[in-house]
Protein backbone atom coordinates (compact mmCIF):
# COMPACT_ATOMS: atom_id res chain seq x y z
CA UNK A 1 0.00 0.00 0.00
CA UNK A 2 2.80 2.31 0.95
CA UNK A 3 4.71 1.56 -2.28
CA UNK A 4 1.61 2.23 -4.26
CA UNK A 5 1.36 5.59 -2.53
CA UNK A 6 4.92 6.44 -3.45
CA UNK A 7 4.39 5.84 -7.14
CA UNK A 8 1.13 7.70 -7.08
CA UNK A 9 2.83 10.65 -5.49
CA UNK A 10 1.94 12.90 -8.35
CA UNK A 11 -1.72 12.81 -7.47
CA UNK A 12 -3.15 15.98 -5.95
CA UNK A 13 -4.33 14.07 -2.88
CA UNK A 14 -0.72 13.46 -1.76
CA UNK A 15 0.89 16.58 -0.29
CA UNK A 16 4.32 15.27 0.91
CA UNK A 17 6.69 12.36 1.59
CA UNK A 18 6.93 10.61 4.92
CA UNK A 19 10.10 9.79 6.79
CA UNK A 20 9.98 6.27 5.37
CA UNK A 21 9.92 7.64 1.84
CA UNK A 22 12.74 9.97 2.67
CA UNK A 23 14.84 7.06 3.94
CA UNK A 24 13.93 5.01 0.89
CA UNK A 25 15.06 7.84 -1.37
CA UNK A 26 18.31 8.19 0.59
CA UNK A 27 18.82 4.45 0.24
CA UNK A 28 18.40 4.65 -3.53
CA UNK A 29 20.66 7.66 -3.64
CA UNK A 30 23.42 5.82 -1.78
CA UNK A 31 23.12 2.81 -4.10
CA UNK A 32 23.43 5.08 -7.11
CA UNK A 33 26.55 6.59 -5.58
CA UNK A 34 28.44 3.29 -5.82
CA UNK A 35 29.16 3.49 -9.55
CA UNK A 36 29.86 7.18 -9.12
CA UNK A 37 32.45 6.34 -6.50
CA UNK A 38 34.20 4.15 -9.06
CA UNK A 39 33.92 6.92 -11.61
CA UNK A 40 35.56 9.31 -9.14
CA UNK A 41 38.24 6.75 -8.41
CA UNK A 42 38.86 6.30 -12.11
CA UNK A 43 39.07 10.03 -12.67
CA UNK A 44 41.62 10.45 -9.87
CA UNK A 45 45.09 11.06 -11.28
CA UNK A 46 47.52 8.16 -10.84
CA UNK A 47 49.95 8.28 -7.99
CA UNK A 48 52.90 10.32 -9.06
CA UNK A 49 56.25 8.72 -9.05
CA UNK A 50 58.04 10.48 -6.25
CA UNK A 51 61.46 12.02 -6.72
CA UNK A 52 62.86 9.67 -4.09
CA UNK A 53 61.50 6.64 -5.92
CA UNK A 54 62.88 7.90 -9.21
CA UNK A 55 66.31 8.56 -7.73
CA UNK A 56 66.29 5.07 -6.19
CA UNK A 57 65.54 3.58 -9.60
CA UNK A 58 68.41 5.59 -11.12
CA UNK A 59 70.80 4.27 -8.48
CA UNK A 60 69.62 0.69 -8.95
CA UNK A 61 70.14 1.20 -12.64
CA UNK A 62 73.71 2.38 -11.98
CA UNK A 63 74.46 -0.90 -10.21
CA UNK A 64 72.86 -3.07 -12.90
CA UNK A 65 74.73 -1.22 -15.65
CA UNK A 66 77.97 -1.62 -13.71
CA UNK A 67 77.35 -5.35 -13.50
CA UNK A 68 76.53 -5.53 -17.22
CA UNK A 69 79.66 -3.56 -18.14
CA UNK A 70 81.75 -5.81 -15.91
CA UNK A 71 80.32 -8.86 -17.64
CA UNK A 72 80.97 -7.39 -21.10
CA UNK A 73 84.59 -6.63 -20.11
CA UNK A 74 85.17 -10.02 -18.53
CA UNK A 75 82.78 -12.90 -19.30
CA UNK A 76 83.89 -14.65 -16.08
CA UNK A 77 82.96 -11.69 -13.91
CA UNK A 78 80.25 -12.27 -11.34
CA UNK A 79 78.96 -9.54 -9.03
CA UNK A 80 79.16 -10.30 -5.34
CA UNK A 81 76.39 -10.28 -2.82
CA UNK A 82 76.44 -7.33 -0.42
CA UNK A 83 74.42 -6.35 2.65
CA UNK A 84 72.57 -3.05 2.85
CA UNK A 85 75.25 -0.37 2.67
CA UNK A 86 75.37 3.42 2.19
CA UNK A 87 75.81 4.89 -1.27
CA UNK A 88 77.99 7.77 -0.05
CA UNK A 89 80.53 8.31 2.70
CA UNK A 90 79.07 8.87 6.14
CA UNK A 91 81.10 11.34 8.23
CA UNK A 92 80.93 8.98 11.18
CA UNK A 93 82.57 6.33 9.00
CA UNK A 94 81.10 3.39 10.86
CA UNK A 95 79.70 1.82 7.71
CA UNK A 96 81.59 1.20 4.48
CA UNK A 97 80.22 2.56 1.22
CA UNK A 98 78.71 -0.07 -1.06
CA UNK A 99 81.35 -1.42 -3.42
CA UNK A 100 79.09 -0.51 -6.33
CA UNK A 101 79.26 3.18 -5.36
CA UNK A 102 82.82 3.31 -4.10
CA UNK A 103 84.48 4.84 -7.14
CA UNK A 104 81.87 7.20 -8.54
CA UNK A 105 83.05 10.61 -9.73
CA UNK A 106 86.64 9.46 -9.36
CA UNK A 107 86.49 9.02 -5.59
CA UNK A 108 87.92 5.65 -4.60
CA UNK A 109 86.27 5.44 -1.20
CA UNK A 110 82.90 6.83 -2.16
CA UNK A 111 81.40 10.24 -2.80
CA UNK A 112 81.93 12.72 0.03
CA UNK A 113 80.39 16.08 0.73
CA UNK A 114 83.44 18.07 -0.38
CA UNK A 115 83.48 16.55 -3.86
CA UNK A 116 79.92 17.40 -4.82
CA UNK A 117 77.71 18.74 -2.08
CA UNK A 118 74.36 18.65 -3.89
CA UNK A 119 74.84 15.18 -5.31
CA UNK A 120 76.11 13.94 -1.96
CA UNK A 121 72.96 15.05 -0.14
CA UNK A 122 70.78 13.68 -2.91
CA UNK A 123 72.37 10.23 -2.63
CA UNK A 124 72.78 10.11 1.12
CA UNK A 125 69.26 8.83 2.01
CA UNK A 126 69.73 5.72 -0.13
CA UNK A 127 71.24 2.36 0.74
CA UNK A 128 72.11 -0.42 -1.62
CA UNK A 129 71.93 -4.18 -1.23
CA UNK A 130 72.77 -6.80 -3.83
CA UNK A 131 71.53 -10.39 -3.76
CA UNK A 132 72.77 -13.03 -6.17
CA UNK A 133 71.63 -16.55 -6.97
CA UNK A 134 72.74 -19.39 -9.17
CA UNK A 135 69.86 -20.63 -11.26
CA UNK A 136 69.36 -23.64 -13.47
CA UNK A 137 70.21 -23.45 -17.18
CA UNK A 138 73.53 -21.73 -16.50
CA UNK A 139 71.98 -18.51 -15.33
CA UNK A 140 73.01 -16.19 -12.53
CA UNK A 141 70.49 -13.79 -11.08
CA UNK A 142 71.38 -10.39 -9.64
CA UNK A 143 68.83 -8.40 -7.67
CA UNK A 144 69.67 -4.84 -6.68
CA UNK A 145 67.68 -3.26 -3.89
CA UNK A 146 67.88 0.46 -3.19
CA UNK A 147 66.11 1.43 0.01
CA UNK A 148 65.13 4.80 1.45
CA UNK A 149 62.70 6.34 3.91
CA UNK A 150 59.76 8.41 2.79
CA UNK A 151 56.80 9.66 4.82
CA UNK A 152 58.17 7.78 7.81
CA UNK A 153 58.11 4.44 6.00
CA UNK A 154 60.95 2.39 4.66
CA UNK A 155 60.58 1.81 0.93
CA UNK A 156 62.72 0.04 -1.60
CA UNK A 157 63.10 -0.20 -5.32
CA UNK A 158 64.60 -3.25 -6.94
CA UNK A 159 65.90 -4.18 -10.36
CA UNK A 160 67.01 -7.62 -11.42
CA UNK A 161 69.20 -8.97 -14.17
CA UNK A 162 69.96 -12.45 -15.44
CA UNK A 163 73.50 -13.21 -16.52
CA UNK A 164 74.77 -16.19 -18.46
CA UNK A 165 77.12 -18.15 -16.30
CA UNK A 166 77.77 -21.88 -15.95
CA UNK A 167 77.16 -23.41 -12.55
CA UNK A 168 80.48 -24.05 -10.75
CA UNK A 169 81.67 -27.67 -10.83
CA UNK A 170 81.42 -27.96 -7.04
CA UNK A 171 77.76 -27.00 -7.11
CA UNK A 172 77.06 -29.30 -10.05
CA UNK A 173 78.53 -32.21 -8.12
CA UNK A 174 76.62 -31.28 -4.99
CA UNK A 175 73.40 -31.04 -6.99
CA UNK A 176 74.06 -34.32 -8.85
Amino acid sequence: MRLKNIFLAGSPSRPGATLLELLLAACFLSIFLVPLFYLFKLSKPPDRKSEMEFMASLLARHVIEKVVAGKVDDPDYLPSMTPEEPTVVFPEGYQAVSQYFRNILGKDNGLDEETNQKLYWALKPFKCQVDTYYLEDNMYKVIVYVSYEEDGRKKRVFLERLLDHPLPQVMKEAGG
Partner: peptide, 19 residues
Protein backbone atom coordinates in the same frame (compact mmCIF):
# COMPACT_ATOMS: atom_id res chain seq x y z
CA UNK B 1 -1.46 8.92 8.26
CA UNK B 2 1.73 10.77 9.06
CA UNK B 3 2.63 13.35 6.43
CA UNK B 4 6.22 14.26 5.39
CA UNK B 5 7.95 17.54 4.66
CA UNK B 6 8.67 17.20 0.94
CA UNK B 7 6.73 15.91 -1.96
CA UNK B 8 8.12 12.83 -3.68
CA UNK B 9 8.47 14.84 -6.87
CA UNK B 10 10.78 17.26 -5.15
CA UNK B 11 12.88 14.40 -3.84
CA UNK B 12 13.10 12.77 -7.24
CA UNK B 13 14.02 16.08 -8.86
CA UNK B 14 16.61 16.67 -6.16
CA UNK B 15 18.04 13.17 -6.71
CA UNK B 16 18.10 13.69 -10.46
CA UNK B 17 19.82 17.07 -10.25
CA UNK B 18 22.34 15.74 -7.71
CA UNK B 19 23.18 12.69 -9.84
Amino acid sequence: MKKGFFSIESLLIFMFVTM
